[in-house]
Each structure stands twice: as structure tokens, then as C-alpha cells.
Amino acid sequence: MNKIVIENLSLQYSDGTESLRDISMSIRTNAITVLFGPAGGGKSTLLRCLNRLNDLTEVKAVGGQILLDGENILDPGTDTIALRRKVGMVFARPVVLPMSIRQNLTYGLELAGEKRKSRLDEAVERSLKLAAIWEEVKDRLDDPAIALSGGQQQRICLARVLALQPEVILLDEPTSGLDPISTGKVETALQELKKEYTVILVPHSVQQAGRTADYAAFFLQGELVEYNDGKSLFTTPKDKRTEDYITGRFG
């Protein structure tokens, strides 16, 4: 089933650089879709279109449409606040908010109007478990989140997104600053998550793309070069450029 359908999406930043050129692709539910390619290819820009975070940067022109469950989210009338609750995002650098671990998790829910303590506690535990960090922090939920290690912070950020029970999870190089062990933990968590959510991941290496992808899309300079299921794309790429990149000839 297609969760998101992107049709002829183009985007230009105010300084004139073109970041996305005529992208069309469908993203499936309950799968990990990987967007990969060299830096500046438009992967992050595309992610930021999916939760309209680009609204807040200097974007000159956006063309085409993005249908989430059949609704065009690029429509000016879209409720971006509701959209961002539905489409959660984890950033490259873990950004824990300057609060305790528990508050970091309940913050989004409180913004959404949830006040019942039992519900909040339940969400804290559930999402920390899903993000594979419950065992490490359960005894110090009221400590400041900043005191955690980078890998733990990143999983807190993931848990924070999960607490909102989104439908789509966007991850922008979530493991770029992490050691191999933490990376492994995050990747394992993602495999669990795809059972319930639609996961879209910008990996920080081709290897990670290969490890995690159910579907993979290769981006080069704002263009979608190739999009296929992960296995075919990584074993028998159709486009020469994809092959060159995967085999490490450039990038």
C-alpha cells in the first residue's frame, strides 16, 4: 500500500539553487524506504518537504504535489502542526530539548493537549522501549537529557517522536554521529518500527543503506536517478551512475 505519493515535486531555494527536480515516487507503508546519494542531492530537502519543515527556511518555489493518504500536504491550507504530529522527524544531530528525559518525551504530547499523567507515563515507557533505550534510562527519567551519551540522546529523540504515535517517521542521517554499537541498536529499532509505521531513512553511508533498505532511491544533484526495492537496486542497479556510486567509484 502506498502511504505517500510524490508527483513531479520540484523545489528551489531562495538563493537560486535548485534542490529537487521533478521527483515522482511512491512510498510504501510498513517498510523502510531509504533515500541515499552524495551530499547535496536533495535527500534532506525531500524529507523536509514531507513534514513541511521547509516552510521555515527560505524557499522560493515549490512545484508538484505530495499526497499523504491521498491528501496534498503542500496545499497552503494544510494544518502543518497536525501534519508534523503525523509525520515525525529525527535529525542528524540529536537535539534533546533542555529538559529532563521524561519531559523530552512528554513535551510533544503535552503540546497536543494530553494532560493525564497515566497516559503520559504509559507513552514514556512504551516509546522508550520501542526505541530500545528503556533499560538504560528507566531509573533516571528525571535527569537532564543532555547528560546522556550521543547514542542515547539519539534514541531519546527517536522515542520522543514515537511518543506522538505518528504514522510516518522521517530520519535524517540518524546515526551519523554514533558509534557502531549505538548504530546497531538504532537500526534494530528501525526494523521493529517498520511493522507499525512507514519509515523513511536518509542513511549516512551506502553500507547502512544496503543493510536497512526495503526500498531504495538514489538521488544525484536533485534528481531521482533510480528507485527500486532494496535488493534489486543494490545487486543489479539499472543505471550506470547508481552502480558507480554503490561500488564506490565516486561520492
Binding site: 513534514n51 519543515l53 521555515l56 502542526i81 497536525a82 508534523r84 504530529r85 515525525g88 522527524m89 535529525f91 544531530r93 537535539v95 530539548l97 533542555p98 513535551y107 510533544g108 503540546l111 497536543a112 529523540c157 520522543r160 517522536v161 506522538l164
Partner: peptide, 11 residues
């Protein structure tokens, strides 16, 4: 990144 973190949570 702080602001984006909060926005992405639907703040």
C-alpha cells in the same frame, strides 16, 4: 536545531 526539533514535534 532546537527550534526545528520542537517544530518537528508539532509545536
Amino acid at each position: 536545531s532546537y527550534r526545528e526539533g520542537a517544530w518537528a514535534l508539532g509545536a
